[in-house]
Write a protein that binds this DNA or RNA. Structure first.
Length: 250
DNA sequence: GCATTAACACGTA
DNA sequence: TACGTGTTAATGC
């Protein structure tokens, strides 16, 4: 991965442009708004291309935008006191994030970095507040989003405690295909095995092995530069009851 | 034993 | 050409 460029919020804004109609159509919460609200939100929205390794927001910086991903792949991470990066989740297309921080008007509590060249959208805190003050549709979307993400993070805690790498890859991959949080993904997720390795915390070679295991049982199909999910429910449950309980043996 | 890094060949965009 | 994938060998816990 290339080095990060320490882009400030104003530098990001300077590089941004208005969204195209196509890009707007891919923003999941626009449909929840009234026509008048949607017009205000669309007029405020900015879009920019983020390079590999580039940070969109960093821990401690003041909140500037509510972000969403139109195309590409982002990583949400943090750093321990001793500089060890901790990846919380990957963010595939259709995902919007940072609303917790925007709602509280607090500094960002994590870093958002592009794993690949990505197309990122955002609306200002001012417009976010305006929508939150008046739009029932917007609030319904936010509530649903927070709710879904809560259960996803609980699941992520479970994944962290699993030792079997195949199971960890299966569960992590399944969470990237979450239809509510990441409606832009569809059934083909554009992700390299290297990128998935960064997200799961495994080497590319081990990820490759796990993917072939999952492909052999018809849960996914490996494609060049991406992965197709064939059975999302089974992928979520993979490894659940399949192996016997260890402590039963005596 | 199992995962990691390094290195290489090969195919694809 | 640059990048992604599949595989093997050496190394470490």
């Amino acid at each position: 991965m290339t080095r990060q460029s320490p882009s400030s919020a104003s530098a990001l804004l300077a590089r941004s442009r208005a969204p195209t109609a196509d890009e707007l159509a891919g923003v999941p919460w626009i449909a929840a708004l009234t026509r008048a609200e949607a017009d205000v939100a669309s007029a405020d929205m900015r879009v920019l291309e983020a390079d590999v390794g580039e940070y969109l927001c960093r821990v401690g910086r003041p909140v500037t935008f509510w972000f969403g991903l139109i195309d590409g792949l982002l990583k949400m991470s943090n750093e321990s006191e001793h500089g060890m990066p901790i990846t919380f989740t990957g963010l595939p297309p259709g995902g919007w994030f940072g609303e917790g921080t925007v709602l509280k008007h607090e500094p960002y509590r994590y870093n958002i970095q592009a794993l690949r060249k990505s197309l990122v959208a955002g609306i200002s805190v001012r417009t976010f507040d305006w929508l939150a003050e008046r739009s029932i549709g917007f609030n319904r979307f936010i509530m649903r989003q927070l709710n879904e993400r809560l259960s996803q993070f609980i699941a992520a805690r479970e994944i962290d405690r699993l030792s079997d790498p195949d199971v960890r890859v299966a569960r992590s991959l399944a969470s990237l295909f979450h239809p509510v949080l990441y409606p832009g993904v569809g059934e083909l997720l554009r992700i390299t095995q290297q990128e998935l390795g960064y997200l799961v915390g495994l080497s590319r070679q081990r990820v490759n092995l796990a993917l072939h295991t999952l492909q052999a049982v018809q849960l996914i199909r490996i494609e060049y530069g991406g992965l197709r999910v064939l059975d999302l429910d089974a992928l979520r449950r993979f490894g659940g009851a399949a192996r016997p309980l260890r402590h039963v043996r005596r």
